[in-house]
Design a protein around this nucleic acid. Structure first.
Lengths: 186, 186
DNA sequence: AGCATATGCCAACACTTGTTGACTTTTGCT
DNA sequence: AGCAAAAGTCAACAAGTGTTGGCATATGCT
């Protein structure tokens, strides 16, 4: 009896929650709508997850799973990183949930910071780069901007790009943010 | 009597609305809160703007006012464009309103598309570029991603950049999106 | 001054939200 | 079969939302 009945409804609630949060954002995704999608009573959502805030926390739980960049030659790091991020983004809508909600929900924004600054910066620090935080931030601007335009705002020219095209365009940008010397201050 | 009493309250409502929409997003910015900020009765907001949706439309009304890029040498177009956008963004919170709400509000998203795809693409078309829409889209990813990280998510390393530093980092990226040949398809 | 109009305030409406508690049904064990 | 716990249902709550109409006040014109 590894699989109890409750586990399945628990999971279906979570799936419905991810869908709704990802499509509508935190405020407009109502408990009632999520419950309806999961074909379940709204009270069940409360019983299983305690509150909307906690349900959201469960739905937005995720990990970037950065690839190991140590063996990759300098000039290809951007490509590898972009490809990883894009593929990660396509396969899992948790990131979309996070992006859509981070804009109005402070705790989601904090998690976004943790992921993109908190996880990238130390990785670059280990590689003995100067200003690792700035480089991590710049990479975040391009990566998140791409995700925003592709998945949230749905700009047609960006939606139409294949993974390979996206990698070819964005890769060199990321590589430059990673390797270029600091601009001389003015 | 060019300046009537009602014009002032009209304006103060609009200012309060911009502030609230920009800080909280569409759903969480309530008419009551906006009215309180403007030291006015909520019913006044309705009398002057008809509905929340119409008030939002008025608050998000704006124009990028693209600079004339024709005299600028190719290699500097990115810098000029970035500097213009950053300065535009700093001076006026309408853009922040739009960015924060576009994520959950379809009509705001549509306006964002109009601005970044609809205004940039024809400008590049006139310059006889290949794939002007893709180039406009790519520029939008970097510009919006920067704005997102700087003004909405408030990533410290990005918030800390001066305008000149931002231009130095992002300029070459934009220039490349503007001038690089299309990547060979795979 | 007197009056019409513009401006503002108050209280209430209909509705939706997250959340709760009491009640019924199903499940699994002995 | 009998029973306790789990799982699910139902109706209601308190709070907050956009929105409306009626009533008071101030303003400007003659």
């Amino acid at each position: 009896m590894a699989e109890k009945k409750s586990d399945r409804t628990r999971a279906s609630i979570l799936a419905a929650a991810r869908e709704r949060f990802g499509a509508d954002g935190y405020e407009r995704a109502t408990i009632r709508a999520i419950a309806a999608d999961a074909a379940i009573d709204p009270a069940m959502v409360m019983r299983y997850y305690g509150s909307k805030e906690k349900l959201f926390a469960a739905a937005a739980e995720f990990d970037v799973r950065l690839p190991d960049l140590r063996g990759v030659p300098r000039e290809q790091t951007g490509e590898v990183l972009v490809r990883h991020l894009v593929e990660r983004w396509e396969e899992d809508d948790t990131l979309r949930v996070l992006l859509r909600t981070a804009v109005t929900n402070e705790s989601a924004a904090e998690r976004m910071r943790q992921v993109f600054i908190g996880q990238l910066t130390p990785a670059f620090e280990r590689a003995a780069m100067d200003e690792p935080a700035v480089r991590a931030g710049l990479i975040a601007t391009q990566a998140l901007g791409f995700a925003l335009c592709r998945y949230i705002l749905e700009f047609e020219p960006i939606v139409g790009l294949s993974t390979d095209e996206a990698v070819a365009w964005l890769g060199p940008t990321i590589t430059r943010y990673l390797t270029a010397p600091l601009p001389s201050q003015v």
